[in-house]
Each structure stands twice: as structure tokens, then as C-alpha cells.
Design a protein around this nucleic acid. Structure first.
Lengths: 141, 141
DNA sequence: ATGTAGATGCAAATGCATTGCATTTGCACT
DNA sequence: AGTGCAAATGCAATGCATTTGCATCTACAT
């Protein structure tokens, strides 16, 4: 995502534009997988674009309220991770050896949940699915 | 679960029997849903069977190693919760209003995952599904 | 009954996340 | 372009959940 596109996303959503916010959005946009606050922080430092940790937390809070990111627990550790929800509803395959998550291109459960809704008298508003295993790369080692 | 049954479970798994450990196992056995460490602690106090928090943490660590409990993030908060895995592989419906989780009696995804495995070249070893919504009780309010 | 490895309680340490406050900055208005 | 002000930032302090070090106690084998 270019600097301009990041600035656009902020303006369109009524979020005041700052160097820090643009930078965070760009990191999220470039990422192929959910990122922890810490890894966002590290990636920013590598770009010599340092942003304070609290600022990142506060920025993510804003993005959450606006529904622009999804927050989830890292499936193996105990931190939260974040993805731009522009990428849409998605699930991940997490490798238990290397810890890397990759996006699934489709959701394998939506159909199954309709039945569930009826049988449990529960109004379903969302779900989260995490799948664990060993990725192709780790298998070949 | 009776005191005797709890003691049995410990002995069968080569875990030294103590008042505290029996008590924790019984709380877990009686629970209908995953419990946080804190709520285990509170339930124990109500029974006048107080156990130190560290002891509960350490006990759960032991049970985890032996595969006797499953650990998961509380889907809404940021604590871990634990269920006896004797209850088998299961998923939960969590009410976003009252926070209560109830067990699903079946797993709606196992079949779907077979296909996934092939299409992503990923050896699947496990999965976790959380479903959110509004429970019957909260709906009627 | 007794010795010992392991379990417990307590307090302090850790790790992630949040918050209070002084300072800075973006932006609307002139 | 200059000015004012609300909002954003950085830093340090704080809040929780969890973990750890250590002195004491206890279950269990002998």
C-alpha cells in the first residue's frame, strides 16, 4: 500500500492523519498474516519509522472501533494479533512448528452453522476458526 | 465427581494426590464450561476449600502436560480457560451479552477440513472453533 | 516413625496491555 | 502564512494475568 492509499483510508474513515498512523496502516496492509503489536513495532523500526508502542495500541483501538481491523489471539501464544479486515472474513492455518499463519481462501463452516443455530436456539453473529498442523515447508524438513 | 473419583483420576495418571489437586479436579469436573483460573479460585473459596492461585496454575500445567485438560483463550476476554479433556473434542457457543459459553454436542467442521488439507498442502493436526451470538436467555430480555 | 522428593503459599518478577499527563502536531479558521 | 485548540504522541507509571524463587510443609515409600 502506498503512502497515498494509506492516507486515503484514514481520510475516508474520518481518522486524523499522522505519520505514525499512516505507517501502521501500511505495515498492516503489507502483511500477509495477522501481526502482533510487537511485530508491528519491530517492522516499523526496520523502516526507520519508529512509533511508540502505546501509539500503536491506541491506533489499533481506533481501527477496531471503525471495524477496519480484526483482533484475535495469537493461536499459539498469548498476545493479540491484528489484520486489516478489508481483507474480509477469513481463517488461518497455523503451523505448530514454525508459528507462521497463512490465510485460507474460503470459510469451511458457514453452511454448517445454519443448522447449529436452529438446534441450539442461539442467534449466531460471528465465529472464529483456527486450524493447526504442519505446513509444507516444515514437512519437508 | 466424588472425592474418590477425583483421587482415582490422579492416581491413574501418576499425579501425587493432595487436598488441593483433588479440589481443582472436582471443580473442573463439575463445570459445564471452560473455566478461568480465577473462577476456579473463586469456586474453591465458596466451598471453603481455598487453594493458592499459583497452586492452581501449577496444577493446570500438570494436567495440560498429561493431556487431561484443554487450554484455550476466553473468546471475549484475555484470560486462558480450561476444560477437562475427558469431555472430548468440543466447541463452544459464547454469548456476547452475558459471556456464558455452552458446549456444542457435535463438531461442525471435521468433514470440511479434509478438503482443506489437500488444497493447502498442510498436515492438519487440530482445530479450534468459537461461535459468537446471543443466547436464548439474552434474546428474551 | 522417618527421610526425602515434590507440592504449597507467599511475595516478587514478568509480560502484555492500558492509562495519566505533559508536550507536540494536524487542521480549521482567519 | 499565522493562530488556537482539540486530538495525538511519547514516556513513565499502572493494571492484570501469569510465572518464578524460595522457604516451609506434606504425601508417600521405606
Amino acid at each position: 500500500m502506498t503512502k497515498v492509499q494509506a492516507a486515503d483510508l484514514l481520510r475516508r474513515n474520518g481518522i486524523k492523519k499522522t505519520r505514525q498512523r499512516e505507517a501502521v496502516v501500511r505495515i498492516l496492509a503489507e502483511a500477509q498474516a495477522p501481526l502482533s503489536v510487537d511485530s508491528i513495532h519491530v517492522r516499523l523500526r526496520h523502516k526507520d519509522d519508529s512509533v511508540n508502542l502505546s501509539t500503536i495500541y491506541r491506533m489499533l483501538e481506533v481501527l477496531l472501533e471503525k471495524g477496519l481491523v480484526e483482533q484475535m489471539h495469537h493461536p499459539l501464544g498469548s498476545k493479540f494479533t491484528y489484520v486489516l479486515s478489508a481483507y474480509g472474513h477469513s481463517h488461518h492455518l497455523t503451523c505448530t512448528r514454525c508459528g507462521v499463519s497463512t490465510r485460507m481462501d474460503s470459510c469451511p463452516v458457514t453452511t454448517a452453522l445454519g443448522q447449529l443455530e436452529a438446534s441450539h436456539n442461539f442467534h449466531i453473529t460471528g465465529h472464529r476458526l483456527e486450524v493447526f498442523g504442519v505446513c509444507a515447508a516444515c514437512k519437508s524438513k
